[in-house]
Write a protein that binds this DNA or RNA. Sequence first.
DNA 1: AAGGTATATACCTTTATAAGTATATTACGT
DNA 2: ACGTAATATACTTATAAAGGTATATACCTT
Lengths: 126, 126
Amino acid sequence: MDIIQVYKCFCDKTRLRILNLLREGPLCVCHLQEILALPQVALSKHLAYMRKRDLILASRAQNWVIYSIPDPTHAVLEENLRCLQDCQSDMPELKKDLLRRIKLLKKIGANCSAAPEPVLQSAKCC
Amino acid sequence: MDIIQVYKCFCDKTRLRILNLLREGPLCVCHLQEILALPQVALSKHLAYMRKRDLILASRAQNWVIYSIPDPTHAVLEENLRCLQDCQSDMPELKKDLLRRIKLLKKIGANCSAAPEPVLQSAKCC
DNA sequence: AAGGTATATACCTTTATAAGTATATTACGT
DNA sequence: ACGTAATATACTTATAAAGGTATATACCTT
């Protein structure tokens, strides 16, 4: 992993918000979309950007794509993901996003987040 | 300090090399130039880029401008500067730059690096 | 096969960045 | 005042990135 590419991923607000969320656990695109309240295409492109640089991992589960942070990761990435926690005060969005995440997961029963490859039986996302 | 601006500074190889050097102590532009073996204008622009974002500090000493990393700095910056040490293996240039720095400082007597505002009496840089 | 939902890609436009050449600025020595 | 060294800025060009609109792909349900 190229550390410059890691920094490139971190130098955009939307990507920081995405990483901040995935740090807590996997999420499908539609949930990210709901939490971040951003257009689908914007999200999709930022996700592709980070996927291409190996910061995040996509796995398809039926109709949905679940994004997550791969487990054994680079030290720089690890450290900066950890930093995101301390940056909640610098970027109020981060804190709000996490609250919205909890709220959403409570509402839907935490399916997506709990398992990296959830078994979804209905046509409803989680 | 805006953490996104910190990451923007870190996502360029030349800037990483500059920060890696300044981490060890202040340096004037001409020494940076000698160590990094890059055109003056390139250096000057990257320094301006980081100066504008408060990552580095410029202080004039006679004919020279000494760059340094301000002392009480942001946690994210602090952490990533520290990370640079561990990234020596990821980016071999970093290690080589530090060696060239030592060599240069030995040659000139470590003037620039030792004092943030060195007293230079001759027209020779350090 | 057909239609719907979820996600990704193509294409366009605007803005940011990087690197180069030339020139300006600042401070020094004479 | 003049010349010179050190550094910064203006200008140009090329490339990357961000956001938008439209469209394509993948999978599911019927």
